[in-house]
Design a protein around this nucleic acid. Structure first.
Length: 471
DNA sequence: GCGCGTTTGTG
DNA sequence: ACAAACGCG
């Protein structure tokens, strides 16, 4: 009877979990373990909203395991000491985990693997999170890609709809010893600000597949058009489930292809625009792996930090709280605060306002997103903010400054999204929701603030600063 | 060398 | 029309 440990991290699912399947295939007894060690994760340690998600996702995983006669052994770090303790108590001969790609996690896992192997324990690691791991895609020169489109062409040619792994058989799970209760991780907020999160999300594997079903039935067919409308549920909203590994790109791809094959040719959805978005997620991981300094430093080294003003706390606070007086920006920031998520188009617009019109460093924005997003992901967050700020890989040109009024008129023409998140403006006609300052009485009556910046003027300032920095 | 490239705004 | 500049095939 050989025993193995299955170390869960951000792969909180039973189906299509290569490390878990491999452990179960090779060992008579497997002990599923989760070790809480945020100090080992460096800048990818979860923020407040992610901790909320993690709590509920672990809860869901533990329940799934219990229903199958197993359990999830919870423990505090350090990871190595904890694993050593479990190995000596269970007589485990091997440890299995799925790989992570953040700089601190890579360093930790490298040390972990060497230390375990040195004491005679076998270590098996797998890919559970990506279509293609960051080092498997390269230019013809053998270099990492810095531009999305050629990256995607290469990756797309490699990607086929692979059948995901089924749940492994659950016989003879090792018994738990001295496990902690989930509450010991202290992941939930002490102030109850999480009501909006609970009303919006169902963390865990079942919740992920529920959303996938909804997306496949509902929005996918018209994805290219609907994905840009923040008032609609036109996107998959799978990002937090993907971040915590409750579902994999392989599962999503396979399921969407399978459903497509079952409807007649005329009604088939065009999957490509959606697969391309998953491609951006892969690209972000590719960039973070090959350019691990980018969470802190500009990807483009010629980009000058003097473009941004020193941190201005009152300015940052109005932006964070959704009181800039620019409706689409405030709606987005309030959606974020309430639900832990923001529509991607709105993310670009609030980021453009912060980094260009308000001239605050993109890292201030990335920090706030990190704490408030349930899908906060170091690779995606870093790439997204640098892209908008203009200093990233394949970035928007710096002179591209979004106009949040035009954007709202184009993508939320009826002001539905604005009304949903800005109760002050809900009663006003759409045209005034887009530009409430045109009716000073409305501002007085509703208490909605006047704009904190002149969009035209601040745009000009940003472009001038860019010219100076270049010159 | 040469064409092409997620997400735009202003005049 | 124009606002840059460069990675990639």
């Amino acid at each position: 009877m050989t025993t193995a440990l299955m170390l869960f991290r951000r792969d909180l699912r039973l189906a299509d979990n290569p490390a878990l399947s491999s452990a179960c295939a090779s060992h008579a007894r497997v002990l599923p373990v989760y070790i809480h060690a945020p100090d080992e994760e460096g800048e990818s340690a979860p923020g407040a909203a992610s901790r909320w998600w993690l709590h509920h996702s672990l809860d869901a995983l533990a329940k799934n395991l219990r229903e199958r006669g197993a359990g999830l052994h919870l423990a505090h770090g350090p990871t190595l000491d904890t694993l050593r303790g479990l190995i000596s108590r269970t007589g485990a001969e091997a440890v299995y985990w799925n790989r992570q790609y953040e700089p601190a996690s890579i360093a930790r896992d490298t040390r972990l693997k060497a230390a375990l192997q040195a004491q005679g324990v076998a270590v098996h690691t797998h890919n559970a999170a990506l279509w293609s791991e960051p080092w498997t895609v390269a230019t013809q020169q053998g270099d990492p890609y810095r531009v999305f489109t050629p990256y995607w062409r290469t990756l797309r040619a490699q990607v086929t709809a692979q059948a995901p792994l089924p749940e492994p058989a659950f016989s003879d799970w090792a018994e738990q010893v001295d496990a902690l209760p989930l509450a010991a991780f202290d992941l939930l907020p002490s102030q109850p600000w999480d009501g909006g999160l609970a009303a919006t999300w169902r963390p865990g594997e079942a919740g992920a597949h529920e959303l996938l079903d909804l997306f496949a039935d509902d929005a996918l067919a018209d994805y290219a058009r609907l994905r840009d409308l923040p008032a609609r549920h036109g996107t998959s909203r799978l990002s937090p489930h993907l971040h915590f590994g409750e579902i994999s790109p392989v599962q999503i791809h396979y399921e969407l292809e399978r459903r497509n094959a079952r409807v007649d040719a005329r009604r088939r959805a065009d999957l490509e625009p959606y697969l391309r978005e998953l491609g951006w997620r892969e690209f972000a991981h590719h960039l973070l792996f090959h350019f691990p300094h980018t969470p802190r430093q500009n990807f483009n080294p010629r980009f000058d930090d003097r473009l941004w003003e020193p941190p201005d706390e009152p300015v940052l606070e109005r932006w964070r709280r959704g009181r800039t007086g620019i409706p689409l920006v405030d709606a987005g920031m309030r959606e974020l605060w309430h639900t832990g998520w923001m529509h991607n188009r709105v993310r670009m617009i609030v980021a453009s306002l912060l980094t260009k019109n308000l001239r605050q460093h993109w890292r201030r924005g990335a920090e706030w997103f990190w704490d408030t997003l349930v899908d906060a992901d170091l690779a995606n967050n870093t790439m997204g903010w640098q892209w908008v700020a203009g200093c990233g890989a394949d970035a928007a040109p710096y002179f591209r400054v979004f106009n949040p009024v035009t954007q709202a008129q184009r993508f939320d023409p009826e002001g539905e999204y604005l009304a949903r998140w800005l109760p002050e403006l809900a009663g006003a006609p759409p045209a005034l929701r887009h530009e409430p300052w045109k009716d000073p009485a409305l501002l007085r009556r509703s208490g909605y603030p006047a704009p904190m910046v002149d969009l035209g003027q601040s745009r000009k300032h940003a472009l001038d600063a860019y010219q100076r920095a270049r010159g």
